[in-house]
Simulated assay, not measured.
Amino acid sequence: MLIMDYEVAVVGGSHAGLAAAHTLGRSKRRTIVFDTGKPRNLSSTRSHNFSGHDGVSPVDLRAAALNDLYKFGHVMISPQAVVGLSVFEGGYQLTTDQQQVITVRKIILATGVTDHLLPIEGLQALWGRKVFHCTYCHGWEVRDQPALVLVKGMIAWEVAMSLSQWNSQLTFLLHGTAVEDAAKRDQLLQKGWPLIETPVVRIAESDTGLIVSLADGQIRTSPVVYTKPIRVQFNNELAVLLGCELSRSGSVLTDAAMQTSVPGVFAAGDLAHPGYHQVSEAISTGHKAAAFCNNQLSMEDFMG
């Protein structure tokens, strides 16, 4: 058998990737983790809905996970980005942005997703701190407070149905759109929730909350703003290079063992789920992918 540089490459060093590396480290597998240090929740100040770690910052969670890996002398962390990936001699060959070429037997893809927000001044800077999109992640902390909801009209009713469990005083900022379905529009209005169609031009932070400026000069204030990304981009470029099967939304399809349609290639975290994106779920799938990856390696080694 050809000796590879590493047994496993984990591409992506956020919660799923580091969890996978932890399991592989405990399994005595020579592993390299490629981590560019840009996780999806980098701007969030707190991580919630994670039993036993509720309220811990994502930065601290990642730091603790990285610290756990240092005891494994056979797990390496690389800050390089993987830009090329191909089949090589019964394994895989990775090329980094520094032109380093590395060979491995198995791959775990944990490259996550990228959120694309409405192009509104100030929105990106407040994303994850004062502007939220996930009620399970942040709803409890801002429960029962008046909330501005910045969404396009086509999804306003669905968002309202979810948010109303946490916040009953909602004002919808539809940013130049409308709720076209008359029945849904009437239902929202009957609940006393204003539907403001004027475009939003700016969101800023104040000592008491958020200040939202509209194109017609109106000013709206609120302790919290909810919004939804206009697009969630699955970072599936490497999976595409290998020919992994994708879902309609772009997530990488896996079986129950987190293996993709390409033998020896696994996927974990947000990349491997079309919509349910939680820290706890990412960690769980990272551990699972690594365990089944290790099982494959053990079988191959045992059978010679």
Results as ranks from 00 to 15, higher is better:
Met4Leu: 03
Tyr6Asp: 03
Ala9Asn: 06
Val11Asn: 08
Val11Thr: 08
Ser14Gly: 12
His15Met: 14
Leu18Pro: 05
Ala19His: 04
His22Tyr: 13
Thr23Ser: 15
Leu24Glu: 12
Gly25Tyr: 06
Ser27Leu: 04
Lys28Thr: 07
Arg29Ala: 15
Arg30Ala: 09
Thr36His: 02
Arg40Val: 08
Leu42Pro: 02
Ser47Pro: 00
Asn49Ile: 02
Phe50Asp: 01
His53Leu: 15
His53Trp: 12
His53Phe: 13
Gly55Phe: 04
Asp60Trp: 05
Asp68Ala: 12
Lys71Gly: 09
His74Thr: 11
Ser78Gly: 10
Pro79Thr: 09
Ala81Lys: 15
Val83Asp: 04
Val83Pro: 06
Ser86Lys: 06
Val87Trp: 03
Phe88Ile: 01
Phe88Arg: 00
Tyr92Trp: 14
Tyr92Gly: 00
Gln93Tyr: 02
Leu94Asp: 03
Thr95Asn: 00
Thr95Met: 04
Thr96Lys: 03
Thr96Trp: 02
Gln98Ser: 05
Val101Asn: 01
Ile102Asp: 00
Ile102His: 04
Ile102Ser: 00
Thr103Phe: 07
Thr103Ser: 13
Ile107Met: 01
Ile107Asp: 01
Val113Gln: 12
Thr114Lys: 07
Asp115Pro: 10
His116Trp: 15
Ile120Trp: 09
Glu121Leu: 13
Leu123Phe: 13
Gln124Ile: 08
Gln124Val: 09
Gln124Gly: 06
Leu126Thr: 09
Leu126Pro: 10
Trp127Phe: 05
Arg129Trp: 02
Arg129Ser: 13
Arg129Ile: 10
Val131Lys: 11
Phe132His: 14
Phe132Tyr: 12
His133Phe: 04
Thr135Tyr: 13
Tyr136Gln: 14
Cys137Pro: 11
Cys137Lys: 10
Val159Asn: 11
Ala160His: 02
Met161Ala: 10
Ser164Lys: 14
Thr171Gln: 14
Leu173Gly: 10
Leu174Glu: 08
Leu174Thr: 13
Gly176Asn: 09
Ala183Asn: 02
Ala183Trp: 00
Ala183Met: 08
Gln187Ile: 06
Leu188Asp: 04
Leu189Trp: 03
Gln190Tyr: 08
Gly192Ile: 11
Trp193Phe: 15
Pro194Met: 11
Leu195Asp: 04
Thr198Ile: 13
Val200Gln: 13
Val200Cys: 15
Val201Phe: 05
Ile203Thr: 15
Ile203Tyr: 05
Val212Thr: 10
Gly217Cys: 10
Ser222Ala: 15
Ser222Val: 14
Val224Thr: 09
Val224Arg: 05
Thr227Lys: 03
Pro229Met: 10
Pro229His: 14
Ile230Lys: 11
Phe234Tyr: 06
Asn235Pro: 05
Asn235Glu: 07
Glu237Ser: 04
Glu237Trp: 04
Leu242Glu: 01
Cys244Trp: 05
Cys244Asn: 02
Cys244Pro: 02
Ser251Met: 01
Ser251Asn: 13
Val252Ser: 10
Leu253Ser: 01
Thr254Met: 12
Ala257Tyr: 09
Ala257Leu: 03
Gln259Glu: 14
Thr260His: 03
Thr260Val: 03
Val262Ala: 03
Val262Gln: 07
Leu271Ala: 03
Pro274Leu: 03
Val279Asp: 02
Ser280Asn: 11
Ser280Met: 05
Gly286Ser: 15
Lys288Met: 07
Phe292Arg: 01
Asn295Met: 11
Met299Ile: 12
Met299Ala: 14
